[in-house]
Amino acid sequence: MGKLSRFIFTSLVLFILWLFLTSTFRSQEVLIGLIFSLVIALFTYNSFTEKGLRNLSPRKVFCAFLYLPYFFWQMIKANFDVAYRVLHPKMPIRPGIVHVKTKMKTDLGKLVVANSITLTPGTLTLDVIDDNMLIHWINVKTDDVEKASEEIPGVFEKCLKEFLE
């Protein structure tokens, strides 16, 4: 991917972060922020992004907006699940470590899937080795690789495959 596109994407992200941090539109602040985001982007664009401006294509942004509400809903469900298990006097847990296979190819895809798994009901990513994920499950329903892969990352991957790959 073109170096210019990656550089522009990095400085854009840094500049938006600066605007949020200072939360003002005074001309001096905006100017300083612009200069610094350009300078920092010059040094870091190589490790910051791989795809550059292609991350902002309309289809990807649309898919991300579809994914976020679903993710937050899962997160709230996860919290009520933990609340039930904590407050129940007998603690209904059946913990175990299961092994699932992920279909994501890129590093960013694996990162987002692993983080989403951590924040959703009852599961926690322990380790990622190539395309194998080791997941601690608080209420194990199956220890078969295929079935567990359907159960845990399957739903997320359908959403994420669109906008990350």
């Binding site: 997160m75 919290n79 933990v82 298990r85 904590v86 913990p95």
Partner: peptide, 28 residues
């Protein structure tokens, strides 16, 4: 939920279960 996360860390039996309660509840 912050309080529930702390309670989960107190009650659950091993490191991994505590990590579950700690991460989910304190994040939200």
């Amino acid at each position: 939920f912050l309080f529930l996360g702390a309670l989960g860390i107190m009650r659950f039996p091993d490191v991994y279960n505590r990590l579950q309660a700690g991460t989910k509840c304190t994040t939200l």
